[in-house]
């Protein structure tokens, strides 16, 4: 039972990451390979604010989201001026840098030692310290994230985004400042990723830089590629399959470190095979081109 709860909590955290990354990749058509950076900023921001400043989880989480949003605003202001491969490359570089900062800024992040002793949330006397309560919290916040993504993509803002995806020059001809739209969706997605990061930090009660490397960004990308781009259900399905499926490796009797690497092989193979045979994923409405 505890094991199933663990899987369910992970699925809901990764569903939030998938939903928010899909706003950038699926709806705006921008290949961002840096989602784990904002996931990490949210996790570290929340953990450090809770431990160093004594904030409660929810205050720290909101502040973590704001920090992530501000960082996204700065880096996004640069990235939004690029398209296509250069966008991908710039975001790739940003993830490598955030990882290197988390690893090397030891006076703040304790580097590879990580940050232990992060508390579980508490609100109005309700404690979310046991896993059933934590899963409920994840589902509530996950529903909010889903709602935000659903609303955004059905609003006029979302329609402009999909139009940018199809033909950015044409949208500019109609007088839209496309970099502004690309920037706003980037900041929103970064804040939602930070929310997922805050949940992860408080759930595991320990974080270290290795959870926020480029590989993690590739994993989140694999989630939405598998599920299908520009589809909320696709992001949910992708998170479900990519968390649950590799768990089977555990039961095949691989040692845990080999199982972790086999998981990476699975994600990589999914990216290659889907690009070869089904670039739009299972439920996708859009294929990258």
């Amino acid at each position: 039972m505890e094991y199933l709860l663990h899987i369910a909590i992970l699925v809901s955290i990764y569903a939030m990451l998938g939903l928010s990354l899909d706003l950038i990749v699926g709806y705006a058509g921008l290949l961002s390979i840096t989602h784990a950076a904002f996931y990490g900023i949210g996790a570290y921001g929340t953990a450090l604010l809770m431990i160093n400043q004594g904030f409660g989880f929810f205050t720290a989480m909101l502040l973590g989201m704001v920090i992530s949003g501000v960082v996204a605003l700065v880096i996004g202001a640069v990235l939004s001026r690029f398209r296509g491969d250069y966008y991908a490359l710039g975001s790739f570089g940003f993830n490598v840098i955030i990882f290197s900062i988390l690893l090397n800024w030891q006076s703040l992040t304790r580097g590879p030692l990580g940050i232990p002793g992060i508390h579980r949330p508490e609100l109005f006397g309700i404690s979310f310290s046991d896993n059933v309560m934590f899963l409920i919290l994840c589902i509530i916040l996950g529903a909010i994230v889903y709602g935000v993504c659903w609303y955004l993509t059905r609003s006029s803002f979302g329609r402009v985004l999909t139009a940018i995806r199809e033909d950015e020059n044409m949208v500019q001809v109609f007088g839209y400042a496309t970099p502004y739209f690309k920037l706003v969706v980037f900041v929103i997605a970064a804040m939602l990723a930070a929310l997922a990061g805050a949940l992860l930090a408080s759930y595991i009660t320990f974080i270290d830089p290795s959870s926020f490397s480029l590989n993690e960004s590739i994993f989140i990308l694999a989630i939405i590629i598998l599920g299908g781009l520009a589809s909320h259900e696709g992001a949910l399905a992708g998170a479900f399959f990519l968390i649950v499926l590799p768990e089977a490796l555990r039961f095949l009797g691989f040692p845990s470190d080999v199982a972790a690497q086999m998981r990476q092989v699975t994600y990589g193979a999914i990216l290659v095979l889907f690009m070869l045979y089904r670039p739009q994923g299972f439920l996708g409405k859009f294929r990258m081109n």
């Binding site: 290949l31 296509g84 990308l221 690009m275 070869l276 081109n289």
Partner: peptide, 12 residues
């Protein structure tokens, strides 16, 4: 872009 995503898979 498709090739780039596939190359990420190769990297992993």
């Amino acid at each position: 872009t498709i090739l780039l995503i596939a190359s990420l898979g190769v990297l992993t």
